[in-house]
């Protein structure tokens, strides 16, 4: 009898624990990465010059990724904001080109988990791209603008390696534009004619594999330390596009360093801050 009572208590206790666990609300975490980079860059913009300009740049990138919901842990969203500036010279160093670029992308990936510690992500990203190039020496064509929006194919491979009680994450990311819309200046026309006189005919083009090809890739390794996770990596970009008898090329190789961290987002009536969290809003 005593045996039976003891067994019942254990069952009750364990079911209570189980009930308690199943009542615990799952919280989605957002994985963030902030990285800074230095890069070497080659730019060909024949509207500004037939010569390829080369130089060094700096960049900042913020990336975040989270699953769609607590139930769907095989589809994630990804947002990325990249800003960079570079100073470039023509091959003879007789003229300089300043480049400022901003790119924002957002998209989704499906997660495959073919082996323990390995995730393969496949999906698509939409991006908006803005670039400003200035060759101050030029006359009436000192500036060239990059304005484009693209749909990109995207793939990511993440592999967690356990080493000396630490988990290192290796990540390879590839992205390529497949369809978009872009502004390309008229060959031989000044921005005065395009913007002041309003001759924008043939300045906006649909882009696809026939006139825009490229790859953006990055290889990073996340290294955990005591209270943070450091991220080191190498980014490579090669993009070329063509319209109005002009061929534009951008090659870039960057060394990046930053940190990665997870955050939980609470906002609104339905997604209040749990009581065991302390917020400055309270």
């Amino acid at each position: 009898m005593k045996k039976f009572q003891f067994l019942s208590l254990i069952i009750l206790f364990s079911s209570a624990i189980k009930a308690q666990n199943s009542d615990e609300k799952k919280i989605l975490l957002t994985s963030n990465a902030n990285t800074f980079g230095v890069s070497t860059i080659n730019l060909l913009d024949p509207y500004l010059s037939p010569l390829t300009y080369s130089g060094f740049g700096i960049s900042y990138e913020h990336e975040n990724r989270r699953f769609l919901s607590t139930e769907k842990t095989n589809i994630s969203t990804q947002g990325k904001m990249n800003m960079e500036a570079s100073y470039n010279l023509n091959p003879q160093s007789t003229s300089s080109m300043m480049f400022l670029g901003v790119n924002y992308s957002w998209g989704m990936h499906y997660h495959f988990r073919p082996a323990k510690g390995l995730q393969l992500l496949a999906g698509g990203l939409w991006d908006a791209d803005f670039g400003f190039k200035e060759v101050p020496r030029n006359i009436n064509n000192p500036v060239s603008l990059d304005l484009a929006t693209n749909l990109n194919l995207s793939g990511v491979a993440m592999f967690d390696v356990r080493l000396r009680k630490k988990t290192f994450r290796l990540q390879l990311e590839l992205q390529t534009p497949i369809l978009g819309y872009m502004f390309v200046p008229l060959n031989g026309a000044s921005y005065y004619e395009m913007f002041e006189l309003g001759n924008m005919t043939n300045t906006f083009h649909v882009s696809s594999l026939h006139n825009k090809r490229g790859v953006k890739s990055s290889f990073t390794i996340d290294v955990p330390s005591n209270r943070s996770v450091w991220c080191f990596g190498l980014n490579f970009m090669n993009v070329r596009y063509s319209a109005n008898d002009l061929v534009f090329v951008r090659n870039e190789l960057s060394l990046v360093v930053g940190t990665t961290f997870d955050t939980a987002n609470f906002a609104g009536r339905k997604n209040k801050v749990p009581k065991n969290f302390i917020s400055t809003n309270e």
């Binding site: 010059s49 010569l51 003229s95 030029n138 006359i139 009436n140 064509n141 031989g188 026309a189 000044s190």
Partner: peptide, 19 residues
């Protein structure tokens, strides 16, 4: 003629009437 500019392989700049 509204002038534009271009460059030679030696880095010299040429200005010329374009429009």
């Amino acid at each position: 003629g509204l002038p534009l500019s271009s460059e030679l392989p030696n880095g010299w700049l040429v200005r010329f009437s374009s429009s």
